[in-house]
Computed example of a mutant assay.
Amino acid sequence: MSDQSALQAVIFDWAGTILDHGSRAPMGAFVKAFAAFGVNISIADARGPMGMAKRDHIRMVGQAPAVAASWEQKYGRPFGEADIDALFAAFEPLNVASVRDHADFIPGALETIAQLKARGLRIGATTGYTRPIMEELMPLAAARGYTPEITVCAGDLAAGRPSPLMMWHAMAQMGIWPAHTVVKVDDTLPGIGEGVAAGTWTVGVTLSGNMVGLSAEELAALPEAERSRLRAPAEAAMYAAGADIVIDSVADLPGAIERISASLKAGKRPGYR
């Protein structure tokens, strides 16, 4: 029987959490896909549902009031399922192409992974990316030293985020239980939601991810007061979504793992805040 008072694994998101600082690859692909159909969407529209399965993401964007109105004005009918199919067919190859240009690791990511493995923790992943997108991205990451034991993709199962199915599938494939010995790390609210629903600890990431949306260079150029201004609403949203701990980037995760390990040994469980 597994030790219920010790962490066993960390399950990461990909874009905005481990690589692609600011989660810029999918954002650009969504904007381009809608533009190809003659409908302009804002960056905020594109980022809003980030972390969900991409078909679900397209549905949410298309149903946003301003986008839905633009679509109906353009086509004389409401945004519907056939439109989601057409947009997804345009989006996926755009995202496949864009991940090649946004595959750099977030500063400190590989060092953090090494520290976690040195603690005996196992590494898995879930993602809102589809399998074809990940088939492009995973070899790029592997060539630079990052290979999770398992990556569960949107579309692999009957439901994606914020359902717990991808997390449970990853844990089952890794042979890890109970859920409170696992930590989910994610830069999106649906990703935090899947960890909460699965019963794991959740660590939200703010400054390196989708909620701030800046490259590493753009973020580094900001004064601390501006970083604090950007951090505050992202942090509040993460805690509201159920995150147990919120950090700036994956580089800060070892300290969060120490806190969670201490809480677990003290008999606490996810969500005890």
Rank of each mutant, 00 (worst) to 15 (best):
E135D: 13
A141H: 01
K74A: 06
A220H: 05
G155P: 09
W201C: 02
T181K: 03
A68V: 00
L121R: 13
L110F: 10
G155Y: 03
A103S: 11
N40H: 10
R131D: 08
F34K: 00
S42D: 04
I247L: 15
W201Y: 02
R273M: 04
S70V: 00
E136V: 13
G242K: 07
V212F: 14
I106M: 11
E81I: 12
A197L: 07
R131L: 12
D85W: 07
A221W: 14
A69K: 00
A237Y: 11
A232T: 15
A256T: 05
D156V: 09
A142F: 02
R119I: 12
A53L: 04
E217D: 09
W168L: 10
S215I: 03
T202N: 14
T188I: 05
C153L: 08
A220F: 06
I245T: 13
D20N: 10
A158Y: 14
G51T: 11
G213C: 03
V96I: 15
R100P: 01
D45F: 04
R161K: 13
D187H: 08
W168V: 04
I123G: 08
M211P: 00
S70G: 03
K32N: 12
P107W: 06
R269P: 03
Q73A: 12
L222I: 14
W168P: 01
T126P: 00
D244M: 07
R144T: 02
A266T: 01
K184Y: 01
R273H: 09
G120V: 12
I113W: 14
I43R: 05
W71R: 00
S42P: 03
G28F: 07
H57N: 11
A103R: 04
G213K: 02
A66E: 09
M174L: 11
K32H: 07
D85T: 14
V203F: 14
A97Y: 00
M167G: 04
H21I: 11
V96K: 08
V61I: 15
R100W: 10
I113R: 06
L116Y: 09
T202F: 08
G22A: 06
M166I: 04
F88N: 15
H180Y: 02
F30Y: 11
E194Y: 09
P148D: 15
L207T: 04
E226W: 14
M238D: 10
G16Q: 08
M52N: 09
A125D: 05
M166N: 05
V185A: 11
A241Y: 14
G124L: 08
S2Q: 12
G62L: 00
L94K: 03
T130A: 09
E136G: 03
V250S: 12
A15Q: 04
S261V: 01
E92L: 03
I84C: 07
G271A: 07
E111L: 02
R131P: 04
K268Y: 14
E235R: 08
V183Y: 06
G108P: 07
K54C: 11
I123V: 10
M211N: 10
A243H: 03
